[in-house]
Amino acid sequence: MSQNLNLAQENAFNLARTLMVPVVLFQVDDAFGVMVSSEYDGDEDTIVHEYDPWSPAH
């Protein structure tokens, strides 16, 4: 696992827990992004993972 992916995953999980809303971690080329799931309208194939703070398994 790359260091950038690991950092992106930690930040996505923390953001979901802080905002208490589901967020998606997505990748475009070599960059990662995180945004609220309900606002994501990008390509489904770019989603790495969705973090839901209300789900017992993340």
Rank of each mutant, 00 (worst) to 15 (best):
M1P: 13
M1R: 13
S2G: 13
S2H: 13
S2D: 14
S2M: 10
Q3F: 15
Q3K: 15
Q3Y: 14
N4F: 12
N4H: 15
N4A: 15
L5K: 14
L5C: 12
L5E: 15
L5Q: 14
L5I: 12
L7Y: 12
L7I: 14
L7Q: 13
A8Y: 12
Q9C: 10
Q9E: 14
E10W: 10
E10M: 09
E10L: 10
N11A: 14
N11I: 11
N11R: 15
A12E: 14
A12T: 11
F13Y: 13
F13D: 14
N14P: 10
N14K: 11
L15Y: 12
L15N: 07
A16R: 05
A16M: 03
A16Q: 07
R17Y: 03
R17W: 04
R17T: 05
R17P: 04
T18D: 08
T18C: 04
T18K: 03
L19K: 06
M20L: 05
M20V: 05
M20G: 02
M20P: 01
V21W: 06
P22L: 01
P22A: 01
P22K: 03
V23F: 08
V24W: 04
V24K: 03
V24R: 05
V24M: 07
L25G: 04
F26R: 02
Q27C: 08
Q27I: 02
V28I: 09
V28F: 02
D29G: 10
D29V: 06
A31P: 10
A31M: 12
F32N: 10
F32D: 09
F32K: 07
G33D: 08
G33M: 03
G33L: 01
G33H: 03
V34Y: 11
V34S: 09
V34P: 10
M35A: 09
M35E: 11
V36T: 08
V36H: 04
S37N: 07
S37D: 09
S37L: 06
S37Y: 05
S38F: 02
E39D: 10
Y40E: 04
Y40A: 00
D41C: 00
G42P: 04
G42H: 02
D43N: 01
D43Q: 01
D43W: 00
E44H: 05
E44I: 03
T46S: 00
T46Y: 00
I47K: 06
I47E: 07
I47L: 02
I47V: 05
I47W: 03
V48I: 10
V48Q: 11
H49K: 13
E50L: 01
Y51P: 08
D52H: 08
D52S: 02
D52P: 08
P53S: 03
S55L: 09
S55M: 07
S55K: 09
S55Q: 11
P56C: 08
A57K: 15
H58D: 15
H58R: 11
H58Y: 13
H58T: 15
